[in-house]
Design a protein around this nucleic acid. Sequence first.
DNA 1: CGTCTTTGACCGGCGC
DNA 2: GCGCCGGTCAAAGACG
Length: 509
Amino acid sequence: MLPGLGFPVNLGRVMESSDSNRKVLSEIDFFSNPTSKPSAQEIHHHHQDVKTLSSNISVKKEIPQTQPVSRCNLDMNNGLQLHTGNTRSDQSTLDDHGVSSDADDKRAKSNELKQLQEEVQRMNTENQNLKEMLSHMSNNYTALQLHLAGLIQQRQQHNQHDHHDLQVVGKSEEKKQVTARQFIELGSGDDEVSNSSSDERTQSASPNNGKSESPESESQKAYKLQKLNPSSSNSIIDQSTTTATTEATMRKARVSVRARSEAPMISDGCQWRKYGQKMAKGNPCPRAYYRCTMAVGCPVRKQVQRCAEDKTILVTTYEGNHNHPLPPAAMAMASTTSAAAGMLLSGSMSSPEGLMKMNPMLARAILNPSCSSTMATLSASAPFPTVTLDLTHNVNNDNNINNAMLHQFQVHRPNTTPFHQLAQPLYNQSKFSGLQLSQDRPVHQQSSTPADNVGDAAKAITTDPNFTAVLAAAISSIIRGNNNQNNNSASSSNPHILNSTSISSFSGN
DNA sequence: CGTCTTTGACCGGCGC
DNA sequence: GCGCCGGTCAAAGACG
């Protein structure tokens, strides 16, 4: 049973060992401590066990040169101590009988040596496998814990609003239908963090996913079917009920990037097709609508519009999850939003202890008042959760990464959106991306074009460990805002700002 | 000829 | 119910 997850984890490869020597491996219990997940230290000890074992193995001959040289083999060569029973037995045979043919002796020892070598090799391989497995499981552990936290919060929220839901059954039914449609539209996102849930959703909502002539038209048909005959889609609705609100928000969650650019559109590593343009109220500049064309039916959209106040600023807003592999250039923002989402979910734990359990490093960053109090801006102005990256500040002032491109990291949160609902959509939309990386130049040494700045910013964001601190600070601010919402909702002169601090010291590499 | 852009029409949500 | 607004659709045109 994986601690904190509530379900068993198959460790078959470890436990299946039947060999006596491999018993050492099977005795290693990564999860003996129910309150902690397997640590690198434990696997290191495991490795040490194998090394110790190998050093205790007796050998009198050199390992043949043709033998693949592994670390374990080298260790074995260095440990020339006669400890094993078999060898001792051979020795006594020599003593007893005095004369024994050299050939037999050599053959016996050669066989023994081979066996031992194989054994050590096998254990070394198994050790490697275990390490890989541990790494994999650690990743899964983190992802699942994040997912679980979201579900728990969601459940709590659901319980709290049960009575309210009963009063608005009619309306919620409509929303469920919309949610089911959203499931279909979202398609089969390759969400590495929440594979299980997204797969489940995909399967339940769209069993023929990918086989239609056009996924989008298929989703529209499904939606129309639901409208005509709501009962026909009950199964879909029932299965999606627990995540209904979350999914609805997920569709709306966005990441917005502000950058100075003369070009009509920033290069972000994806292919886009314009499908509309509108004049938006309050802005003389038209808003252009694009959809991702890197894969058929990819639901990702983006809006591009110049800022009304400063027309040199291009505001690009992304929405949705890519349903296809992303090019490396586009992975940058995926990582960024994934980090943000993960920490937002961590924030959903809302207590320092919970946060520390979820991710100690980020928790420390979040709980560190020296950074959290100066980096986050929290706004409730957006109608849906929006993470805004403001890359418009002058890059020439100094070499500091934060001054170069990430002067502000804002998290907009609608008043009415429960925190876990904010977290989940961002978490799920972490796949979409993104900004193109400029891989070949140091971020902090150039005076680049605004469009380049965006790519560089993405790179800096994803490579700079301090970015986690910035995100953590923002989330920390949200948490506090969430906790104190009743107290300070009117504290700002700006009616939209709940709890505003500014990012002033994001120390880059 | 295929792909992409343009642009008016259409639709749904929301506030009054 | 009506109008406004944001978002999307799809026919027509442009382009390579």
